[in-house]
Design a protein around this nucleic acid. Sequence first.
DNA 1: TAGATTGTTAATCGATTAACAATC
DNA 2: TAGATTGTTAATCGATTAACAATC
Lengths: 214, 214
Amino acid sequence: MRKEKEKVSLPVIRRLPRYYRHLDDLHRAGVERISSSALAQNMGLTASQIRQDLSCFGGFGQQGYGYNVERLRGEVAEILGMDRVHTAVILGAGNLGRALIQNFPFQKYGFQLTAAFDVDPKTVGTQIGGVPVFHADGLEAYLKEHAIEVGALTVPGHAAVRVAQRLRDGGVKGIWNFTNIELPEADLPGVRIENIHFADSLLTLSYFISEEPL
Amino acid sequence: MRKEKEKVSLPVIRRLPRYYRHLDDLHRAGVERISSSALAQNMGLTASQIRQDLSCFGGFGQQGYGYNVERLRGEVAEILGMDRVHTAVILGAGNLGRALIQNFPFQKYGFQLTAAFDVDPKTVGTQIGGVPVFHADGLEAYLKEHAIEVGALTVPGHAAVRVAQRLRDGGVKGIWNFTNIELPEADLPGVRIENIHFADSLLTLSYFISEEPL
DNA sequence: TAGATTGTTAATCGATTAACAATC
DNA sequence: TAGATTGTTAATCGATTAACAATC
């Protein structure tokens, strides 16, 4: 039973996918139940934090027993929206776009990738891993025809903002942004943006491996 | 002049690449100086936070004037280690590996990508964007021969932990992990790990676009 | 000089950790 | 029943914001 979700903090939300991942591993390893302290050790968190986090959504455990792994995994999946099917398209069928289409298990996370869009005449009209590639000019018509919730943005940086706005105008709810551009949230009201900034990540790594000595 | 770096918190460090990005944009737009409040507006932060963040590393501004954009950009670059050349190799030359090699501007961030490793006989022995692809069996010998600081991990999940340990044994300082596997930091002492978890990011987006109504 | 803006100290806010009564 | 472990309330810790003297 889920609590009314008043206002769950971002740090908690960002830990949920990790909970899911660990619970899924445990489940597939045949583990039936786990206590918050065992899970904490497993994940490198504190038991307190886990109980605090989960209590944002409801009481999923049982005193003296702990949590049923399969049930908790299911609850977390539901909280994350994995129990519904989300439609998605991908913008840009270059190297990165292809890599995502061919390797990323969208359906495993509840997503259905229905189309890719590009401008390269060599790829437009083909299929990649069963996903048809349409010309970007047809984006508006496509979005009108199909209810698409998420657009994965793997276009070149100079096209990012323009394409993002076209997605928004087409009614998309979320943008999964792989460009190194910071999308202007002010110009994209109502759209949730999730960034994967490769460069920021590499520079963070650079910081740590560069620490003294000179 | 840089302060002794006592202990800078992770949130601050993770904001540094964003500072760099914005300062670089401003610089290229011809902006010479900027106040903390203008930069704050620009980035969606508070002026206080910016001054607080920067003061972890030194006093880069001037009362009544603000910050010199080019100088501050340089300071942030130096803090991030962008003024040095870092060597890197990439493990796994599949779709994602290729995408990184061909599209990611390593040198722009101070990195020199010297080699890729794979096991596929079709790609081993070839070059991708000027980067030679060697057989993974030769990794140890290569790492002994060349001082490599970072390994970008784009191998299939089942190989991730094993390859990570080989990188560590070979003396690598950091691992840029693109697999959806959580690398066991306990087994990788002394190695800094920076994760790009596509799935976690998409699930976070899923959470937000799934919020009520059912 | 007067106005602007820093760097830093103090105040507030939020997130994590600890403690414990409830209870399986 | 006794032992284990939850969910929640209270305490602590850390990060962000506000305030202001210093000074360009």
